[in-house]
Design a protein around this nucleic acid. Structure first.
Lengths: 191, 191, 191, 191
DNA sequence: CATGAATGAGTATTCATTCAT
DNA sequence: AATGAATGAATACTCATTCAT
């Protein structure tokens, strides 16, 4: 087993958790090293500096999330089915990577993100935008700017998962189904 | 003209803008002083330290927002009217205090907030919660946890205003009316 | 009554107390201003800066102490009488200017004293030295370097007054007579 | 060679010298770092902050001095022999740790000393006090408050060593014997 | 490769000093 | 003359980064 790969993963995982919980600026390299059970200097074997680390992390999880959404995308199904696929993707991704989506949400406009990170994030937005645009063409989704609709779904969904993570509400299947319905009603074309 | 009051206000305003744009940890006292056109030491004449400054700021704007929502609250009108009042309050507050709501949103769970700040914020949430609870009783609002519904509206709305501030979309009356309708559909009881 | 003179005196008096209690470096100008009931800026009307203030203060009290010792000096009396005069002078000066001698003692080798201050202090030492030298000539005082003997008396006496000021022992006439005898025995020529 | 131990020692040694020469408040961390040939940040690897440093230093040398006085204490010998032991201990300690006793003397009443430091210092005083008390019982030492007698010896002795350090007088064996005799005469019971 | 001790640039904060009122 | 608000240089302390082991 390649130890070094495992170390790199530990570092990334610890960084994700800490960045999500405290934010980039309030997280120190020694904190990450300590949480990952490696020496502080070791982090610099894998990442040139703290900004490279956060960008690597950001790109990694944005890509992972993008893949989750794109995988088995029901292109030929109904808009409502597509929405279900996307929503389920968000739920699954959040379950698999506890802090990832919250980290993405709280850091996607940060001053330290490089061009590549921004491109990755834009690609993610594009998936949602394409869905919205198609939905609007088919008169299934209401006539509002795509970005606004994405903001409403994405914003609401993430704010919700913040509560779930904090333990304020419990993520039962029933709740998730209700939230999906609520979000769908927010974007779908009114009768 | 009371210069000192004006200086305190300049400091608060600059801090609001910078905290909203970069976050508390990434904002230095010299940055604030520079933006407010005062000496770094001057900030300490008005605020004991950086944490007192951010808590003062937080409480100030949460109170202002709370007042905006509570003022002329249409307690005896329909739930839909109450929702309109709240939504309009959010819009008006955001127009009057460009960065305030985003600052509140991004800092309301921060490690440096004191008890008073948390109480103020909880009072704000209570207004929304009361509205939701009444709506659910009247079967006007769907059966989801109140916190979840608040998250969906609040989250979506703020994510949207982030876009408006960034210049990605324009805040026309038409757009706002559409967004209000969208948010309402997200929470209202489905037929 | 010239108010400004009175203000200057208040400043000097407060500075003396605070420098004696906390030391020069741990005493701030606002502390002195506050204690003297004047504005901080006012201190700069009377003293160019903090170092000028401490040097003025030092010279003032060294001069006062010197005068106390020189006044009615019993040049033609016995060495023991001269010693009594000096010891009584120390006691009287300390009673009249509670913190002055301790301030002189704790600051006489400080890095911020200017040449004039050092000269004044040397003049004070000279009085004691002359007494010692005469006493040694007359075989009344033991054969040790004058500076050493001064150190022994001066050091012991001041350490004692530190205790009296701190309230650890009480300055009765009996105690003082005993201490004078003790100090005299330390310097007088042994049979 | 354990570098880290040596670094810690260098820091302590530089701090001792500078605190003795300039006092705690007038000594900056960069001054100490510079004198110890370490980076300013290194000091914080060994001492939590400046106050911890000065307390560590104080306790270290008070303990060392206490040990020097207690070692081989001639409990069953005459009071004069005990005095000789104590005096020799002071001399030896001062020769071995040039600035230590002066540092202790000038900082033993400082506002930044913690309880442990005060306890250590009180223990040191207790040694001297016990000696004085026994001497008074045996009518070998004059009837003055113990604290006063300690002040006279301790004060005089340290004032003297300040002169020796400053190079004003030379510390020959002859001088020290004379000073010991002088100090003894100050405290011993007069015929 | 991995480490963590060491560094010094950068941050929050204090305080001597100035100056408009 | 007197004030105290305002300033910014200086200080204690932190932390990203380096490098000897």
């Amino acid at each position: 087993m390649p130890t070094s790969t495992s170390k790199r993963d530990h570092i990334l995982h610890s960084a994700l958790t800490l960045f999500a919980e405290r934010g980039f600026d309030a997280t120190t390299i020694p904190m990450i090293a300590n949480d990952a059970n490696v020496g502080a200097g070791t982090i610099y074997r894998y990442f040139e500096n703290k900004e490279v680390l956060v960008n690597t992390l950001f790109q990694h999880y944005v890509t992972l999330f993008t893949n989750t959404l794109e995988e088995n995308y029901p292109q030929d199904h109904s808009i409502r089915d597509q929405f279900h696929h996307l929503f389920q993707g968000m739920v699954r991704f959040t379950n698999e990577h506890e802090h990832a989506l919250y980290f993405i949400k709280t850091h996607n406009a940060a001053y330290f993100l490089d061009d590549t990170s921004r491109e990755h994030f834009n690609h993610l937005l594009m998936i949602l935008q394409n869905f919205i645009d198609e939905g609007k063409e088919e008169k299934q989704i209401r006539e509002l700017p795509s970005k606004a609709l994405i903001a409403i779904i994405f914003g609401g969904f993430l704010e919700l998962f913040k509560l779930i993570r904090a333990g304020d509400i419990e993520a039962s299947d029933e709740l998730l189904a209700g939230v999906e319905e609520s979000c769908w009603d927010a974007v779908r074309h009114p009768e």
